[in-house]
């Protein structure tokens, strides 16, 4: 292993699954070697960017790449959607972080993914398959158009249950309905793995509580460093406080305090919204000015230099 084979975080593949979901494959040979199911990375888009956590949705040790599947929900994830093209580079990507999923000697597991959790549950499903388990996949999407990676999951699942809110493909219902179907069909399920928005994971944990089936969830609190240094990612698990980035992100779903997690996720909502509005505004202005300028140029009214003087929408940003 060469020590200085560090990556420059180049994006080698991009795929758009829908208006809001996209895939990025980033070159990082060392990380591709080290990555295990259940781990995540922290990405910085540019020098001014936020550090955002994203699950390693797949890794290719031969190609030396890490795959991320991202939902555009706010400023950073939307900006990435706009700017991350093949050949461009991320400012930074550090990982793999977190304790890898313990692929137990389970004989039969249900892997549940909903929303932004579909991609992250894939390496776990594959991990279990490789460990010789019987894998039942349960995937939830809003409708048919949002479905992705069905074939990838089929390749590692012995059974796949697709759920859509409107029934446009698979069964109509939520992933919890899918879990019920799986539980009805098998009475010897050892473990359930559920990844998705907190509400969904909470519902999944509730769905298996009565049958006392071990249910692991991957929590997604707000993070800063991802190295156990800030405590921002703390979650209540049973009567203990855990730092998701170094003690998790996988925890026993029957013990996680989801209500607490959801409240804490709303901590920065107001400022996040502000940041996003500012950013969209600035994109719009750049476009308008750009168009107007081209127009003017075509008519030969403006000197080239003036074109560079786009107004900086962040000029009057209140510092702090």
């Amino acid at each position: 292993m060469k020590a200085n084979a560090m990556s420059n975080f180049e994006i080698v593949t991009r795929e758009d699954f829908s208006d809001v979901t996209y895939l990025l494959e980033v070159r990082h040979p060392l990380m591709a070697k080290a990555a295990k199911p259940g781990q995540f990375v922290i990405v910085m888009l540019n020098e001014h960017g936020e550090r955002i956590p994203l699950t390693i949705a797949d890794f290719d040790r031969k190609k030396g790449t890490i795959t991320l599947v991202i939902q555009a929900v706010g400023k950073t994830t939307r900006q990435m959607q706009a700017e991350c093209k093949v050949g461009t580079k991320l400012y930074g990507m550090v990982g793999p972080m977190g304790i890898p999923t313990h692929i137990a000697k389970a004989k039969k597991v249900v892997c549940v993914g909903g929303g932004l959790g579909v991609a992250p549950v894939f390496p776990q499903a594959r991990g279990y398959k490789e460990a010789g388990a019987y894998v039942i996949g349960v995937l939830g999407f809003r409708n048919k158009d949002l479905v992705f990676w069905e074939d990838k999951f089929r390749a590692v699942c012995d059974e796949l249950i697709l759920c859509t809110n409107d029934g446009s493909v698979g069964m109509k219902g939520f992933v919890t309905d899918g879990i019920k179907v799986a539980l009805a069909g098998h009475n010897d399920i050892d473990e359930v793995v559920a990844i998705g928005p907190p509400v969904m994971m909470k519902a999944c944990a509730d769905a298996t509580r009565a049958a006392k089936i071990k249910t692991m969830v991957s929590v997604n609190p707000i993070m800063v460093d991802g190295t156990g240094m800030c405590g921002g990612c703390r979650v209540k698990v049973g009567d203990q406080v855990k730092f998701a980035c170094v003690d998790g992100p996988d925890f026993d779903g029957h013990l996680v305090d989801f209500d607490d997690l959801m409240v804490r996720l709303s901590r920065y909502t107001k400022v996040e919204k502000e940041a996003h509005e500012r950013w969209s505004e600035s994109c719009r202005m750049t476009k308008q000015v750009g168009a107007a300028a081209l127009d003017a140029l075509a008519r030969g009214h403006v000197q080239q230099a003036e074109l560079l003087e786009l107004p900086d929408p962040l000029d009057d940003a209140p510092g702090g």
Binding site: H48, G49, R51, V224, M229, C230, G231, V271, R278, G319
Partner: peptide, 24 residues
Amino acid sequence: LSANELLTRCNLMRARDFPNFDTP
């Protein structure tokens, strides 16, 4: 929050220049 979180956000991530820098 911990002082580490406050200080990291402010110093390293430059939240003090928000929204010029993205970390709030």
